[in-house]
Structures are given as structure tokens and as C-alpha cells.
Amino acid sequence: MLIFTLRRLSLFIFTILLLTLLSFSLSFLFPGDQLINLTGQLNASPEQLAILANDYNQQFGLLSQYFSYLNHLFHGEMGYSMNSQLPIATEVLNRLPATIELTCVALLVAMFFGIPIGFCAAIYHRKLPDNLILTVAMLGYSIPVFWLGILAILVFSIQLGWLPSAGQISLLFEIEPVTGLQLIDILLSDNEYKWQAFQDATRHLILPVIVVALAPATIFMRLARTAMLEVLDTHYIKAAKAKGLTFSQIIYRHAMRNAFIKVIRDVGLQFANLITIAMVTEVIFSWPGIGRWLIESIYQRDYTAIQGGLIVLSTFIFIVHIIIDFVYAALNPLAREPHHGAR
């Protein structure tokens, strides 16, 4: 397990370095002055710019500039937003929790529904339920997410009036941000309308979560179906059948667990996709998250914000990747061992 952890950690550090290199080079690629792109100090006077240039080692070579940039990053300094002139770190901290909340709940929902349905399809392989599930899955990952979001609002918010259409919580409630995660903040707050606020926040969460979760859920269905079919085709299942175990015993005791492990391995890869979907969904549901902020930043040509958003969002994805890798390793002893031979 130690070797496994070290391997993951070194990979993580390497990836983050590459990412910062990418983000650093973006400041050269974006239109305008590189130093201003990096710091976002649009209104700085020439003297202030000179100080900044010194700060970022502009008089030295590129490598030194990069290290100075890294140094600033490690101290949480990502420059200032060109649009609002607030520090990027503050802007990100204000918005990232909302995205974390949305995407993590959506991921769990997608797994919670997708994987069992996929197993179901595999169990009824080439029968009606299987075909039905495959059709639904095909529609699910073909539907453009912005269209789905609009339709969901039309049906559930306007026509049925069940669920709210925008935002994280009704603005009636005043919740002090502590962790930034709305549901936790509500529980921590001493608002007299605490429980109403909690219910309201949950109701706000439902529609966007469903919209974000749909496409990944259909992909999990397919992954789970394939994994289950592969497992059911293995020798140990055949052996179990030969031993006379009932079908449900085989599924529950042997197949499910092994198929589940196979699916978990791919969950991490789907997470980047899920974030893409969440970015568009945030725009449609006015979700105060980092995706909407990034898309608005591009309208404003706020290059500092785009660089900061890239780093933060990608780091978040890597962290989720690694968490899932550890879950996988915890479930599957084989993965913990060092690799032998070719991958």
C-alpha cells in the first residue's frame, strides 16, 4: 500500500507541475501583456508594474519566472480577476464549494442509479429489459445537456411547479458561509428557519443534479453492464454454477462485487466528463459555481480568471481521481501490488 501511495503521489505532483506549466504558458498565449495576464492588475501604474515585474522575476530567464510563478501559486496568490479586481483565490473559494457540492452529489447519484441498472441489463442480457435500458442509455448520452436543462425547468419548475429553477437556495434565507458547502453551512448556522432552509436547498439541488447525473449515469449503466457480462463469463462463475448455487447467490456473493470493482476503476475517467456537463448546467440553472464563473470570465476576457480556474478545476478532478484510485485499491487487493511486466 505504501508503494501504491507513493506512486500515486509522485504522479500527482508530476501532473500538477505539468498543469502549472500549461497555465504559465497560457499567460504568453493569451492576447495582451504577459505580466498583466498573469497578475490581472489591469489598472496598475507603471511603478506598480515594475514592482510586480520584479516580484515575478521578469528580469531573469523563463525558468526563473516559472519558479516565481509556482512560488506565488503555493502561497495561494493567483493574481486578481481582471473583471472584478478581487483576488482569484477569493473568487475561487467563493465558488468552488458550490461546484463540489453539485458534482459530488451528481456523481454519487449517477453511480447509485447507473450501476445497479447496468447490472440489471446484464442479468437480462439480450432480453427486453436489456434492450430498453440500452435505448434509454443511448438517448441519455446523446441528449445535449443545455437542452435537457431547459426542458427540465419547463416541465418541473414551470408546468408542474415542483422544484425551483435557479440558484442554490432561495434568497429569503440568510446563511452565513463557513465551509461554503451550502448544506453543511445550513446545519452549522443558527438561523431560526434552519430546517426550512435545508429543505429549500435540497429542493434547489435536485434538478441540476439530475441533469448533470443523467449522461454519466447512462455511461455507468453501460460500463456496469459490460463488466457484469465479463464477470458472468469467467470460469469461477461457471464453477459456482456447477456447484449448484442459485442465480441470486451467484450474483450477490460473487459477481456483483467483482463487477463493481471493474466499474469503479473507470469512474475517475468519467469525472472530467461530468465536470464538463456541470459547467453548462451551472449556466442554465444559475448555479453559483466555478463553471459558470469561468464561462462568464471568457465573455469578459478575464484571462487571469481562466488560468486560475483551469488549475483549480483540474486539481479538483485529479484529487477525485486519486480518491477513486484509493477506493479501487481498497476494494481490489490486486491493484495494490506493484505492477508486474507490461501494463
Partner: peptide, 22 residues
């Protein structure tokens, strides 16, 4: 007691919020 300005730049977004009672 409380007056909230919900800043909603999108025209459709505002109408949706009105229709949904938000």
C-alpha cells in the same frame, strides 16, 4: 422586513423565476 435584489441578467431567466414563483 427584507428586500432582496436577485440579479438575473438573462431575460428568460427572470421570466422563469417569476413563473416559478421565485
Amino acid at each position: 422586513k427584507q428586500l432582496v435584489f436577485d440579479i438575473t441578467p438573462r431575460d428568460t431567466g427572470r421570466l422563469t423565476k417569476l413563473l416559478a414563483g421565485e
